[in-house]
Amino acid sequence: MARHKPAAEGGYQRGEETRARIIEAAVAVFGERGYEGASTRDIAAAAGVNAPAIQYYFDGKEGVYLQCVEQLIEFLWLRMGEPVEAAEKALLEPNVDDGQLIEATLDILGAVISLIEDKAVVWREFLDCHQEGFRLQSAATLFETKFKVRVGGVIRVLIARLAGLEVQDERAIIHSMALFTQGLAFRAQRSKLLTALKWSAINEKEMQLVRDVVLTQARFTLEGLARSK
């Protein structure tokens, strides 16, 4: 793991400010060029620091990339933490009904869809590169253990409970992946969405329209699963 040092000449506060500036620049550079295409020199130039600063604060490119992933996870939990925690709490309730489980599932999916909004553009681009293979195994493991396992796990339990299946049933796994992919698809196909709808941007109004349509379709699916028990 990268070292965490303050700048020798500027004290702890200045060191923290420099680290934050480097991470902010690195997120943009990695998002544009991927891990392999980015260099520490590119990141340093974007951050307005000397190239050795990357080594000093992060032990090189891998270290700064891992810190970017940590920041990405924090950003995603700000968006998704509340609905995930609410779903986990609902699943512990002995008298929870299918309607409550459906709403909990839709709240998580809605949080995923919100990532298509333009104010999330820098993190969206970084995440897209991360998922498309521009990543280290160490970063993939970090993202898996600190984010994907928990989110994927709660969605799978929700689906299994609604459909009357065991959590490890292949059908529960496929249903949960299919549902989650509905939210991810619009982020991956964002440019096609803009072209098809003749939108120049996706702000709150546009995001809400996409969210409403996708959640309506997802609700039909979830209600159908519940009826199939």
Rank of each mutant, 00 (worst) to 15 (best):
L66R: 11
P52H: 14
K198F: 01
A46Y: 01
R190G: 03
L222W: 07
A44M: 10
T195N: 06
A25I: 15
E132H: 04
R14D: 04
D107Q: 08
E88W: 03
E103L: 13
D107R: 12
R187H: 10
L109H: 12
R150N: 06
I73R: 10
L165F: 05
I113C: 05
S176V: 10
A139G: 15
Q13H: 06
G153Y: 13
C68L: 09
V27P: 02
E103S: 13
L158V: 04
G48C: 12
F58K: 11
F134D: 08
N50W: 10
I159L: 04
R79S: 15
A218M: 06
V122P: 08
G37P: 12
I113H: 04
D118I: 01
I174N: 00
E204T: 00
D169Y: 12
V151P: 06
K89W: 12
G224D: 09
A111C: 08
L193E: 05
K61Y: 05
A104H: 08
L165W: 04
G99K: 13
S138V: 13
R150E: 04
R171C: 05
R79Y: 14
S39R: 06
F134S: 07
V154M: 10
K205Q: 07
E144Q: 10
Q100L: 14
V49W: 06
G37V: 12
E24S: 03
L92I: 01
L66Q: 07
K119M: 05
L184H: 07
E88P: 04
V157Y: 03
K198S: 02
A38N: 01
Y56Q: 13
D169I: 08
G60P: 06
Y56G: 07
R124Q: 00
L193W: 11
L194M: 11
V213H: 03
V69C: 09
